[in-house]
Design a protein around this nucleic acid. Structure first.
Length: 591
RNA sequence: GGUUCCGUAGCUCAGUUGGAUAGAGCAACUGCCUUCUAAGCAGUAGGUCACGCGUUCGAACCGCGUCGGAAUCACCA
């Protein structure tokens, strides 16, 4: 049963009886922990109906409810707040429901299909910390939406064509001497990235030379032979020149192999991969439609534009004078095709906040074209990741490489675990598995616990901390519970058929916390924020840990109490596990 | 300059739709390992929620303004 609905029904009925009013909007919230009670009714909005003081109104409603609802055992009034306390039997029943419900926390199907696009890498360089935030966010939000009963399609739009990849290709052709991932021992994406940097080096030298010959910086940038050659390469690619095409396929293949490794390490995956090389021509037909409808207009040079100044935005180009498309054209086309092909109810783009304007324009254009599904497009915008030294800049070599970071996290977790003697009786395989879970858990939790839209600071020293509000703390709590359950099983203590009777206060708190899980998942989906899930899980783990230190479970002599505690521990572990899975974090059974 | 976003403890961050005495962690300080895992627990200290005005029973949250920071406003993607 849904506890919040139950409470609001109870309150509704009391108001109907006392004041004869129906459909009154109610303000019911969880009681803050400094006060007695479980749910709190804010009575200020009801004073017009009762025509009494806040205290008297709350008193009156409280008396009616306790007299007529067996599940509500007590109430207290503080100023305009009516705190209701539910009976321990009531909580016992809820706990029974959790134990019995294998899919607790998994909402019934909504029948909605949601596509979420994330990652969207360029194929000219390896993934870095910014991509890590993107991937973790996208994957986690997908998990959360699934838990809320949506059919979710995880999509990746790979930016596999364009001048950037031609730069790597050209540099490899000129200076690569046939180097391959095998011959160099480099991961494919890193190898291609190396030549992207190589291109830039030569490009800069040529610019300097041209400037020394008297050209302005802008001229030099346009006239440097190497950039002209790269542009020529792009034209050849578009003409499907066999040699260039083969080179392009080979180098992209290296990159994909490299990305696969990184994605796997991050624990993210996709249901559908789109390649820009196959979609970049989309959208032109929409431009035609827009022209016919008079939404767009053509300039003398044949380029197509939309005027959004009436909406407080600028004019936006949609098709170049030579008829080729731009980013916006493609995005219009892919959005259209996705909604049509998949009968999507919602489309979510996980893209950095530097593209806020782009998506604002995208939605507005689709709307003006008459596509109402435009309202179902969400740009899940996230902030930059900054380092203690300032911003990451690829040109200045201050980027944090994703693969390096992952390796670092895992090896630090390994060292830490060894230092604490946690891996003493483990096989090498187990030791690695645990280190990977803990290292990645720390990284994922550290990134996901901050509100996506905020710029976040990534301090490597802090991210690698395993104490306090961190992924490893939650994993640790889970491992301890598993340890208790293992010991119980080994010593033959039965806890399968425990009867729920009376509870200690701490245990009621734990049950209440477990009951919150579904509404946390729902709230997280509403606001696309994994951080809510993280905060909840941390609280739950902390609550259990606090309780667990003051009470013995296995040595409790009262059999019924012991069974009950074991079952409770089991359920806490279960919720921790499913909750962490929403963040894409695996939970070890020992660590 | 226009648009959007951000500003909460020394540091990193929470704070569901406006609700009660604004919360964690890190760093600092005090205690606690002979018991199911001390990656832990219990505690102390730390705040003009950037600032001002307004809306109301009530504002970190809503509105207007000011200050500070970020992103963006390309025939790049």
């Amino acid at each position: 049963m849904n506890i919040e609905n139950f409470i609001s029904e109870v309150v509704c009925r009391s108001i109907e009886v006392l004041y004869g009013a129906t459909n009154v909007p109610l303000q019911i919230q969880k009681t803050r922990k400094e006060f007695d009670g479980d749910y709190t009714l804010v009575v200020f909005p009801l004073l017009k109906l009762s025509r009494k003081s806040p205290e008297a109104t709350a008193q009156e409603i409280g008396e009616y409810i306790t007299a007529n609802t067996p599940q509500v055992k007590a109430f207290n009034v503080i100023k305009g707040f009516l705190n209701l306390s539910l009976d321990s039997v009531f909580w016992g029943e809820r706990f029974g429901e959790i134990v019995a419900n294998e899919n607790f926390g998994q909402a019934a199907s909504t029948g909605r299909t949601v596509m979420i696009e994330y990652s969207s890498p360029n194929t000219n360089k390896p993934l870095h910390l910014g991509h890590v935030r993107n991937n973790l966010l996208g994957y986690s939000v997908a998990q959360i939406l699934k838990a809320n009963g949506n059919h979710v399609i995880k999509a990746n739009l790979v930016n596999d064509r364009g001048i950037h990849i031609c730069k790597s290709m050209l540099a490899w052709k000129l200076y690569g001497a046939g180097e391959t991932p095998e011959s160099s021992g480099l991961k494919g994406d890193h190898l291609v990235g190396k030549y992207y940097v190589e291109f830039d080096k030569h490009y800069k030298v040529q610019i300097k030379e041209l400037m020394a010959q008297g050209q302005s910086e802008d001229e030099a940038k346009k006239n440097a032979p190497i950039i002209l050659e790269a542009q020529a390469m792009l034209r050849k690619w578009e003409a499907k020149d066999p040699e260039i095409y083969a080179l392009w396929q080979m180098m992209n293949g290296w990159v994909y192999a490299g990305f696969d490794v990184t994605y796997k390490a991050l624990g993210v995956d996709f249901d559908k991969i789109y390649y820009e090389s196959q979609t970049y021509l989309l959208g032109k037909s929409l431009v035609e439609i827009g022209l016919q409808k008079g939404v767009f207009y053509r300039r003398d040079d044949q380029s197509v534009w939309i005027d959004l100044t009436a909406d407080g935005l600028d004019e936006k180009l949609l098709l170049r004078g030579d008829g080729t498309s731009v980013y916006m054209t493609q995005d219009l086309g892919t959005a259209f095709r996705r909604f049509e092909d998949n009968r999507l109810d919602d489309m979510i783009y996980v893209v950095g906040n530097e593209q806020n304007y782009h998506f604002q324009v995208l939605k507005l254009i689709l709307k003006k074209l008459g596509y109402n599904w435009s309202d179902h497009i969400t740009h899940l915008s996230y902030g930059m990741v900054e380092l203690p030294e300032g911003k990451m800049k690829s040109r200045e070599g201050t980027v944090v490489d994703a693969d390096d970071l992952i390796a670092d996290m895992i090896s630090t977790a390994r060292e830490m675990s060894e230092e604490l003697g946690k891996l003493d009786d483990c096989t090498e395989e187990q030791a690695h598995a645990v280190s990977a879970m803990v290292g990645m858990g720390a990284l994922k939790y550290f990134i996901l616990k901050v509100d996506p839209k905020k710029t976040m600071l990534f301090d490597p020293r802090e991210s690698i901390d395993f104490n306090g509000n961190t992924g490893p703390f939650i994993q640790y709590t889970h491992a301890r519970i598993c340890s208790i359950l293992r010991k119980a099983q080994e010593t033959g203590i039965d806890f399968s058929g425990a009867v729920v009777a009376d509870y200690l206060p701490e245990e009621i708190e734990l049950i209440k916390s477990l009951c919150d899980y579904p509404s946390v998942v729902a709230a997280a989906a509403e606001s696309f924020s994994p951080s809510l899930v993280g905060a909840y899980t941390y609280e739950l783990a902390k609550l259990f840990n606090g309780y667990y230190h003051d009470h013995s479970i296995l040595r409790e002599e009262d059999v019924a109490v012991r069974q009950m505690r074991l079952q409770l521990a089991q359920q806490v572990a279960r919720i921790i596990c499913s909750s962490m899975l929403l963040l894409g974090i695996e939970v070890p059974e020992r660590m």
